[in-house]
Design a protein around this nucleic acid. Structure first.
Lengths: 180, 180
DNA sequence: AGTTAAAGCGAATCACTTTGCCTTAGCATG
DNA sequence: CATGCTAAGGCAAAGTGATTCGCTTTAACT
C-alpha cells in the first residue's frame, strides 16, 4: 500500500501541482481507503513530507573523483537533472510553501544538498586544491541552479551547469574567466 | 473594509505562515463577514495574490545614479531589506508554493525584480560601462539574494549584499577579486 | 485456535464555501 | 423632500469535501 500511495502522490503532484493533491484523491488513485492514509501519515503535509524524504533524501553520496571541478560538475548536473523533473520540482515548491518564517530549519532536501556541497569542497581543500568557501558555493552554484527552475525564470540546460561551475572556480582561483 | 482585510492577511501570514490563513480567519480578524471576502476576492489564492500585488508590486523604479556599482548596491540592498521582512517572505514563499509545473510565468514579483535588474544593466551598458549580462546578474546576484532567505539557509546581512555585488562586478570586469 | 497489527468501511463531524435574502448607504431623479 | 435604484455588506441556512470515529475484516505469525 505504501508504495501505491507514494506513486499516486507523485503522479498527482506532477500532473496538476500541489493543490490537486488531497488525501481522498490520493487514496482513490492508489486504490486504498482514505482512512488508512490518515492513520499512517496523519495529514497531507505529513504524507508529502514523507514522499519528499523518500524520493529525494536518499541521495547517493557526492562524487569523489579526486578533482574538484569534476566533482562539482557531476554533482551539479545530478542536481539539475533531479530538479528539472516535474515531480521533484513540485515537491520542492511545495516544501518551500510550507516553510514558516519562524522555522530555523530549511527543507531537508536543501540541507542535504548543502551538506553534499560542503563535503566536496572540504575534500578538495584537504587535497590542497584551491577551493571556494561553502558560502560561495551556495551563492554561486547551488542558488542559481535551483532559483531559475523553482521560479520558472527560464530553463536550465547542462551547458548552464558547466558555466556556473566555471564561474565559481575561475572566480575563486583568480583565473579571470572570459566573460561570455 | 479592503484595508482591514489586507492588514489581517498580512498579520496572519507573518505570524503563522501561509496555512494559518483562511478566509474565515482573515474575516474574523478584520471584523468583516466571510461572505464579503468571498464576494470580493473569490478565493484564498485570489486574496493572497491581491495582497502580494498591493504590497510588493508597486516597487519604486530602480536607482539611476549613473554608476553601475552604486545602482546595484542600492537595488540589491532594497531587495534584501524587503525580503527579510516576515510578511514579504511568507508571501513570496506562498507564491512559490502556488506555481504549477506547467506555468510558463513566474511570480509577478520576481519577474518585476528581474526587469528592474535588466534596466540597471542596460543603462550601464548604454553608458559604456562594462556590465554583466542579465543572466549573470540573475544567477549571481538575484538568485543568491533570495535563495538563502527563502530556504532558511541562513541570514543575509547588508554586508553580504555588498560582497555579492563585488563578486558579480569583479568577475565580469576581469578584475580578480580577493577570495575572502 | 489465538493474538495482534494493518487496513477497510460507513456514519458522524467539522471547516470551508456557496447561496438566497435582507439591510444599509449613496445618489440621482421626479 | 420623497422616491427609487444600485452597490456593498451582513446574516443564516444549506452544500461540499476533508477528517475523525467506532467497528469489522483480513492476514500474518504463535
Amino acid at each position: 500500500m505504501c508504495a501505491a500511495v507514494h506513486r499516486a502522490v507523485t503522479e498527482l503532484i506532477a500532473e496538476g501541482g500541489a493543490d490537486q493533491v488531497s488525501i481522498p484523491a490520493v487514496a482513490a488513485r492508489a486504490g486504498v481507503n482514505p482512512t488508512s492514509v490518515y492513520r499512517r501519515w496523519g495529514d497531507l503535509n505529513g504524507l508529502l513530507a514523507d514522499v519528499t524524504a523518500t524520493r529525494l533524501a536518499p541521495e547517493d553520496p557526492p562524487p569523489d573523483t579526486g578533482d574538484l571541478r569534476t566533482d562539482l560538475l557531476q554533482w551539479a548536473e545530478r542536481s539539475r537533472a533531479s530538479v528539472t523533473t516535474p515531480e521533484t520540482l513540485a515537491l520542492v515548491r511545495h516544501a518551500v510553501g510550507q516553510l514558516a518564517c519562524a522555522d530555523s530549519g530549511s527543507t531537508p532536501r536543501m540541507a542535504a544538498r548543502e551538506r553534499q556541497l560542503a563535503t566536496i569542497l572540504a575534500r578538495a581543500a584537504e587535497r590542497g586544491e584551491p577551493a571556494p568557501t561553502l558560502r560561495q558555493g551556495v551563492d554561486h552554484l547551488l542558488a542559481p541552479l535551483y532559483f531559475r527552475v523553482i521560479l520558472n525564470l527560464g530553463p536550465i540546460e547542462p551547458a548552464d551547469v558547466h558555466r556556473l561551475v566555471d564561474d565559481l572556480l575561475h572566480h575563486h582561483t583568480g583565473t579571470c574567466a572570459p566573460t561570455t
